[in-house]
Design a protein around this nucleic acid. Sequence first.
DNA 1: CGTTTCGATCGAATCGATTCGATGCTAGCC
DNA 2: GGCTAGCATCGAATCGATTCGATCGAAACG
Lengths: 323, 323
Amino acid sequence: MSGPTRAPTLADVAASAGVSLSTASLTFSGNKPVSATTRERVLAAAAELGYSGPNPLARNLRQGRSGVVGIAVGQLSTAFRDPAALAMLDAVSEVLGAAGLGLLLMSDDDDHARLPLDAVIYDICGRETWAAYADLVARDVPLVVVEGPAWPGSTYIDIEHRVGSAALAEHLHALGHRDVATVTLAASHPQREREAGLRDVFPHARVLGACESDVAAVQSLVAHHLDDRGPVTAIVCQSDVQAAGVVLEARRRGLRVPEDLSVAGFDGVATPWLDLELTTVVQPLADKGHATAEAVLGRIAGADVSDVLLPVALRVGDSTAPA
Amino acid sequence: MSGPTRAPTLADVAASAGVSLSTASLTFSGNKPVSATTRERVLAAAAELGYSGPNPLARNLRQGRSGVVGIAVGQLSTAFRDPAALAMLDAVSEVLGAAGLGLLLMSDDDDHARLPLDAVIYDICGRETWAAYADLVARDVPLVVVEGPAWPGSTYIDIEHRVGSAALAEHLHALGHRDVATVTLAASHPQREREAGLRDVFPHARVLGACESDVAAVQSLVAHHLDDRGPVTAIVCQSDVQAAGVVLEARRRGLRVPEDLSVAGFDGVATPWLDLELTTVVQPLADKGHATAEAVLGRIAGADVSDVLLPVALRVGDSTAPA
DNA sequence: CGTTTCGATCGAATCGATTCGATGCTAGCC
DNA sequence: GGCTAGCATCGAATCGATTCGATCGAAACG
């Protein structure tokens, strides 16, 4: 006969247990000691009423935090197609999860202004403007930028693009390469830095074109360059996925890698479907993710968080050889 | 002199504009008409005070919704390594994003009981129990299960595993194959269905072993089977990624595909780094994602939502040939 | 034995909006 | 002119907790 009764609240539990609302709250939150007998009475009442714990919405309002961190990655499907992005995401999620925070995917155009976010991670390489930025600033949401534009008020996590890129270029130069071309990402901070590193060694390196980190995309980009490829003896890519695309396309066109063409990548991720190990610049993806998440935690806690610049390392594989 | 003044609230704006709190609220929410002059006064006051819109936390509490939908996918890095998962995620995000809902990643072990979720999508093939399930039920959170166990109270989105698998098996049978082996996923509803479909045609098909949808994993799984492979002439996999792994490993061992060994996959995703088109069972990934998201919206709206069963289609590629 | 201290509990204020029902005012109508 | 609608606005209740400060006993102390 008791219609669809609404879900019990903490007040119901408190009443049923014969304690005050505040005591019931303390029982669940543990923020102050509660005697064992009282705790049991409250928990018993909760169990009987089918109370499933404090309403998160109410807690959030009171505490002024939502427990949710946004991560902007552009288009989901393209962003995560590159294993490097996944490794990073994994590390971020690990740290935030341990801190009890959830990770909310922010895709490009959606309007997330209505969602309560405790902080936002911006990890869209290859984009320099962002509609949501002004809004986040207005709402005082801490922003952690990964390899992006150095926006005022945000914390900045980055790697040594230029150093790594230059080291790779020197490796090629030492192998005797003189005519080097590069596949780029969209114009962006990391892209500019990496290109600068390349030009430290090869000032006249040719740009074949820009594309995202996707095997098919890079294949169609370099396809015609490989037919009539002029004097180029090495191609430097901005990700291992791009490099894999170049290797596959080169082979399809009858070129041997590395004998006829040296190919280099960036990131240092596993490419199990390629039968050679790429020469690449290994970046500490897990460290980058951890550093990002730690920065988020710090900013949420209101601490002063300093920017992070992580080192990279050249890894010489089987995809580069003397010119 | 005015210390760190706290962020302005709607009450401040209302006072400054000389209107009531309710009118100010209506100005922002648009739930009831407000005269143009009043609206302008309110907006002007808001601009002057630097008010950046209603606090989402407060709105959420009042409305009893958070605007966030959780999606459980197991380990992030492994879940998204398969492009099929990404395609699905993309479609889900598209629909939910358009509805103003955010998508929160729930990884395995994190405790998300403290987060306010309007609904949860369960998309972990290969798992039959879930610690969070009881909790979600207790909290009355709508649950949409994709290819998972048919849990009471949840909405169920699935594809025709058995039909597709049987169609593929018949294709192999028609090619003259009689000795077929299969690589499986962890024991789960879709795996059982697919295996049943396979055994409809090949009752004695041999199971090589189970592994996740990952090139490297499948390679090490089938490695020794390919050396001394007995009478097997075809291997049926549970994903295109698995199939790609088998193809690569077979070639590494000197077997030609499809001349010496036929290989089939499942999903119908692009494998640009493979130079042949896989024979596979194409599932409508975008439709599946859309249906999932629509089910979520329906459940949140309190509607009766019926389960969805989507069709699949056999696609014959270059990886299967006469035995 | 009087006083201090400490732990457990309680009452009330608070977080910042949304929304129901009531009120006042103007316009339309006969 | 009197009456009814309808629109804009307002006051107050509400969402469901957390948390500050006060209170009350009992234990510890000199």
